[in-house]
């Protein structure tokens, strides 16, 4: 069992995600995709040969590149979604800041 380390790592990451959810540090919705990722990780560390099988099906010559490409693509998607989320939040903050500034001025400013 050479891959025991990877199994332990995956399990630890899963536990950490669960812990974060319990402590309210991450929303259940966002944790979902990370959890899926971890489960794939766990699956691959238990059955390392499966990646070879998938690579063969997809016509990828060297299996590890498939793994790396998959990771990069996933991270890019995740990053893009984060950008979208940040923009959405920024818009909301801007709106609130404007409104609060106006409300405050109503209180203090002369009429």
């Amino acid at each position: 069992m050479k891959n025991i380390y990877f199994i332990i790592l995956s399990v630890l990451v899963i536990l950490y995600i669960l812990y974060s959810i319990r402590k309210n540090k991450i929303s259940i919705k966002t944790s979902f995709s990370w959890m899926i990722l971890c489960i794939i990780m766990l699956f691959l560390s238990i059955f390392p040969k499966s990646i070879d099988f998938v690579a063969e099906q997809l016509g990828v010559y060297y299996a590890p590149t498939l793994l790396l490409t998959g990771c990069v693509v996933l991270l890019l998607i995740k990053n893009f979604n984060s950008s979208k989320e940040i923009y959405y939040l920024q818009e909301k903050v801007n709106y609130l800041a404007e409104e609060v500034s106006l409300l405050k001025s109503k209180k203090t400013g002369k009429k």
């Binding site: 801007n94 800041a97 404007e98 609060v100 500034s101 405050k104 001025s105 203090t108 400013g109």
Partner: peptide, 13 residues
């Protein structure tokens, strides 16, 4: 009359 922004909103906002 003035409005005091709650934080720096930059020119456009």
């Amino acid at each position: 009359n003035y409005v005091d922004n709650v934080f720096n909103l930059k020119y456009a906002l």
